[in-house]
């Protein structure tokens, strides 16, 4: 058996989902015996069978992935509860194995996967999707690329008719239906505050808070996930601000983005002084990183 064939067989076995009791399956879903696969490539020793030796790697694989996934999505875990979250983790990681050298990208497809599999979140599907989008935006905000920011005076010198402003790559614009930003901050705070003695209290508090958010009537919340001094922040903005920023992110020239919000098809028009104030704030926060011309 050549190297590639051995590696394909072993990888398939190692990445096979565990049984409910977290052991290696004897039979793969396609009916193939994993015991036979292990016997064919792995030597037994005095203490362990071939299957048991393979199982060490199989369990380590899932332990590692579950751990990374849980670390990246504590908010989703709070929204769904531990049991449903574990089900999501198993199914998602089975359907979307890592295709990156880094576990940082393990959740890259979670939003699209969850949209295709609404049963996993049940009645909290929309809330869960909001939380996933926020947590993925936070990951991007944490280590996304930062280009040299434009200063307010840089903006004062340009002709808006020909200017295209680019937003920082680390910045995400989220159109949410639930206040998941507040919820995630509370979840994090609970995790920091928790001690062994107060763990049960903390879980109850989290459960109540999530239930309260889930009962809320959904309404539009416009959020910018950004970074200042290498710390990630959530900043809520108004609908008109969000429209302008979204237009710029979509590649519209500045004049087009402004026309869009001031009179065109934007949901609410804005006054010029108001817009100037927004641009001043955004540029102070370093959100703009480059200019281009039509």
């Amino acid at each position: 058996m050549n190297l590639l064939k051995i590696q394909r067989q072993m990888a398939q076995a190692v990445m096979m989902p565990l049984t409910p009791s977290e052991r290696m399956r004897s039979i793969a879903p396609n009916g193939r015996s994993l015991r036979a696969v292990a016997n064919s490539i792995i030597k037994p020793n005095d203490c362990l069978t071939s299957f048991e030796r393979m199982e060490i790697y199989n369990r380590q694989y899932w332990l590692r992935l579950f751990s990374a996934f849980a670390e990246d999505f504590p908010g989703l875990r709070a929204v769904l509860g531990t049991h449903a979250f574990d089900k999501v983790a198993q199914a998602y990681l089975r359907d979307c194995p890592s295709k990156s050298f880094t576990l940082r990208n393990i959740g890259a497809q979670l939003e699209s996967w969850l949209k295709k599999h609404p049963k996993f979140a049940g009645p909290r599907q929309k809330l869960a999707l909001d939380m996933v989008r926020l947590e993925w935006a936070e990951i991007n905000g944490f280590d996304g690329k930062r280009e040299t920011p434009l200063k307010p005076e840089d903006l004062a010198q340009v002709n808006p008719a020909v200017l295209r402003l680019r937003l920082q790559p680390y910045l995400s614009l989220l159109d949410l239906r639930y206040p998941v930003d507040d919820l995630l901050i509370e979840v994090r705070k609970d995790a920091e505050d928790v001690s062994v003695a107060s763990n049960a209290f903390s879980e109850r508090h989290k459960h109540k808070r999530v239930a309260a958010v889930a009962r809320m009537k959904s309404s539009s919340i416009f959020l910018v996930v950004h970074r200042v001094e290498e710390e990630v922040f959530f900043r809520r903005v108004g609908q008109r601000e969000f429209d302008i920023l979204s237009s710029l992110r979509g590649g519209k020239p500045l004049s087009g983005a402004l026309a869009f919000t001031r009179g065109g098809t934007s949901r609410v028009p804005a006054r010029l002084t108001e817009i100037e104030g927004w641009f001043h704030t955004w540029s102070m926060l370093g959100w703009f990183c480059g200019v281009g011309k039509n």
Partner: peptide, 18 residues
């Protein structure tokens, strides 16, 4: 890794000349 999928583990080698 194999076929673009990563195990994120340090899996042992078969000790062959290939």
């Amino acid at each position: 890794s194999v076929d673009g999928r990563y195990t994120h583990d340090l899996l042992p080698m078969p000790y062959t000349f290939e």
